[in-house]
């Protein structure tokens, strides 16, 4: 295993493809939590599927309303159906939530960098997710479970605000029953009925079973949660060039032309959203950059 782990991209698209919206039909709408939902999409234009790498995103277009970047949350080893998970936070995602089975949604992508699932082979893998940050990491778990023998210990640490905010409950139940995947959940606050952990997600890092010197960490959640998580991972001895985070910025084009997603020297839609912490650490701590 090389000490340096790089994020990879899938095959490039031409510009014409990159700006062209492809219509997909909604096959299923899944309510994940009170404000979060998943959309399963089938291509309408006769395409066979939609290849993507874990961590990449698509631009989703609601007719006449607008377009927003949404993480791909489905299984990268089965690309017939395209799955996205998002939270209702703005005009477009609100309109998206009102779409019904059979309605059409426009898709551009996949864009951006991806989690280093290939380069992590031979290592332990620690996945730390906060809130909706589990969505872009779910493809990693699917991928690793499909190639489970290639990895050492695999740990999923997942924190949300309350037990009601936990996403992908069916998956989590399945994952928790596996012996080759350690899944630890925690919530920031809970009342009597909750029998699980209470405390911020960083409290799980100290007691998670993995070898910090032989491990790749993938972290996704609110920026502040990632900041604290990286600190805690470093306390355990995880190397910064084997720590990966996923950034979020305003994106209007997805291909580095509109300028909105600039984060100092990088464009989050092109060089990101997944960054090696070593490469981003100087920028990561700069305020309002």
């Amino acid at each position: 295993m090389a000490t340096t782990v790089k994020n990879k991209k899938t095959a490039p698209l031409g510009t014409a493809d990159a700006m062209h919206i492809r219509p997909f039909s909604i096959r299923r709408v899944v309510k994940e939590s009170f404000d979060t939902f998943s959309l399963e999409l089938d291509p309408l234009s006769g395409e066979k599927g939609h290849k993507f790498a874990p961590g990449q995103f698509n631009m989703l277009y609601v007719y006449g309303v607008g377009e927003v970047p949404i993480s791909i949350s489905g299984d990268p080893t089965r690309h017939k159906t395209l799955t996205h998970t998002t939270r209702e936070v703005g005009t477009v995602t609100r309109a998206m939530r009102n779409l019904k089975v059979g309605d059409t949604l426009g898709v551009r992508g996949p864009f951006g960098s991806s989690w280093p699932v290939e380069d992590a082979v031979g290592n332990d893998v620690v996945i730390v997710a906060g809130g909706i940050g589990l969505a872009p990491l779910r493809p990693v778990i699917y991928y690793i479970l499909a190639h489970r023998e290639k990895y050492g210990k695999v740990v999923l640490l997942y924190g949300t605000r309350t037990p009601e905010d936990i996403l992908f409950r069916k998956d989590l139940e399945k994952w928790r029953s596996r012996f080759d995947l350690e899944t630890l959940l925690t919530v920031d606050r809970a009342t009597g009925a909750w029998k699980g952990n209470v405390g911020v997600v960083t409290t799980l890092i100290g007691r998670a079973p993995f070898d910090p010197l032989n491990c790749v960490a993938m972290v996704c959640g609110p920026e502040i949660m990632m900041r604290f998580t990286v600190l805690e991972l470093q306390k355990r001895g995880v190397e910064e060039d084997k720590t990966f985070i996923s950034m979020e910025r305003n994106m209007k084009c997805g291909i580095g032309l509109c300028g909105h997603c600039q984060l100092g020297p990088t464009f989050v839609c092109k060089e990101g959203p997944v960054y090696c912490y070593r490469d981003l650490k100087d920028v990561f701590i700069k305020r309002e950059m």
């Binding site: 404000d35 939270r87 936070v89 605000r161 920031d188 502040i224 949660m225």
Partner: peptide, 13 residues
């Protein structure tokens, strides 16, 4: 960190 309530959107409580 708990007080920061980092996950944004608020469910019922």
């Amino acid at each position: 960190m708990q007080l920061l309530d980092v996950y944004g959107n608020h469910s019922k409580k």
